[in-house]
């Protein structure tokens, strides 16, 4: 089933003024339920305008010719608007700037309250949302959101959105401005949210490495038009197109290109660091086993003197990387004052 169906969508800002600008051109896009879609494009390519159509913040300018249908509801129909806002959870850039209540619990409850849920249900959702984003209810519920660290504030803001249990979660640059551990935690959280709360996720990002790793589909915009739509491999390996769109290649892809240019044999479709490490490891093993085989026909692959480059050992490392998300536990050093405020 399609979660989102967009057809013939055009959008012009400041129509009939000298500043007229066509932000979207003939967008046709269908997003399946369960997709993890990465929306990429240079600044000004129309990403934000497009996502604001998904919950009716911007309405199609021509109801007859254009349509935006979300979960079977037309976004042009006023009576669907409220439901649309609840079903499409929008996490804008720097969402922590939108926190406004005096306690964390009240802030997270704002959305569910607007849904006219009963008090118990609201309370249940607030607890659940805080738990999902990794904030302990008893510790955080009564604190002021403004006393929290940057990463914690962002979690509270995300909790406020998912407390409405949206079926579609849209995040605009969710890790902008966070430190490296914060980035890692929020990205792991988005994956978790897809599994536990919102089956369809659309994420807007300038970080091609993150997109290559997380998304199963990439849509690239340029000057308001969709210029590529496919798997991360299909889109990112189209080097000319990525360049034309004003985007960077994923680090792994550009590094692989550097190596290929220097005569190293590698596949041309590498987009993640994991793939690159795996390929390079395999090349090294092959080269070494050949060297060993030349010396001594008896030696088996993987038993080289240095040891430790069995295929399995690599997979284990990746697993460990994947769960190593909590910076506080990683660094494990106690703060002498027990304070960890943002400054």
């Amino acid at each position: 089933m399609s979660a989102i169906e967009i057809s013939n969508l055009n959008f012009v800002y400041s129509k009939k003024t000298p500043n007229e600008k066509q932000a979207l051109k003939n967008i046709n896009l269908s997003v399946e339920e369960g997709a993890f879609l990465g929306l990429v494009g240079a600044t000004g390519s129309g990403k934000s305008t497009l996502i604001q159509h998904l919950n009716g913040l911007i309405k199609p300018q021509d109801k007859k010719r254009m349509s935006v249908v979300v979960n079977g509801m037309s976004a042009t129909d006023r009576k669907n608007l409220k439901k649309l806002r609840f079903e499409v959870g929008m996490v804008f850039q720097y969402p922590e700037y939108q926190l406004f209540e005096d306690t964390v619990a009240k802030d997270v409850a704002f959305g569910p309250k607007n849904m006219k849920l009963d008090k118990e249900e609201i309370d249940r959702r607030v607890r659940r949302a805080l738990e999902v984003v990794g904030l302990d209810y008893d510790k955080f519920a009564s604190r002021s959101p403004f006393d929290l660290s940057g990463g914690e504030k962002r979690r509270v803001a995300i909790a406020g959105v998912i407390a409405m249990q949206p079926k579609i979660l849209v995040l605009d640059e969710p890790v902008a401005g966070l430190d490296p551990i914060g980035r890692r935690e929020i990205l792991a959280l988005v994956k978790k949210l897809q599994k536990e709360v919102s089956p369809t996720v659309i994420i807007v990002s300038h970080n091609m490495d993150d997109m290559a790793q997380l998304a199963d589909r990439i849509v690239a915009l340029k000057d308001g038009e969709i210029i590529a739509d496919g798997t991360p491999k299909q889109v990112f390996c189209n080097r000319n197109l990525i360049k034309e769109a004003g985007l960077d290649l994923p680090t792994a892809t550009s590094l692989a290109d550097m190596l290929i240019a220097r005569g190293v044999e590698l596949p041309r479709d590498i987009v993640t660091m994991e793939e690159l490490a795996k390929e390079l490891g395999a090349s090294l093993r092959k080269k070494r086993s050949q060297a060993v085989a030349d010396d001594n026909d008896e030696t088996k692959i993987g038993e080289d003197a240095d040891g430790g480059f069995y295929a399995e050992s690599y997979d284990e490392d990746v697993e460990v990387e994947g769960v190593e998300v909590n910076g506080v536990e990683v660094n494990g050093v106690e703060d002498p004052d027990g304070e960890d405020e943002d400054v």
Binding site: D179, P180, I181, R184, D209, T251, A252, L255, M273, L276, A277, L280, G281, L284, R285, R288, D304, D306, G308, F309, S313, Y314, D317, G327, V330, N331
Partner: peptide
């Protein structure tokens, strides 16, 4: 509370692979 640059991180992974 920081991470290595992606390239440095990759080099470290590759060291585990025998590089």
């Amino acid at each position: 509370g920081l991470t290595l640059p992606p390239i440095t991180e990759l080099a470290r992974e590759l060291e585990k692979e025998g590089f």
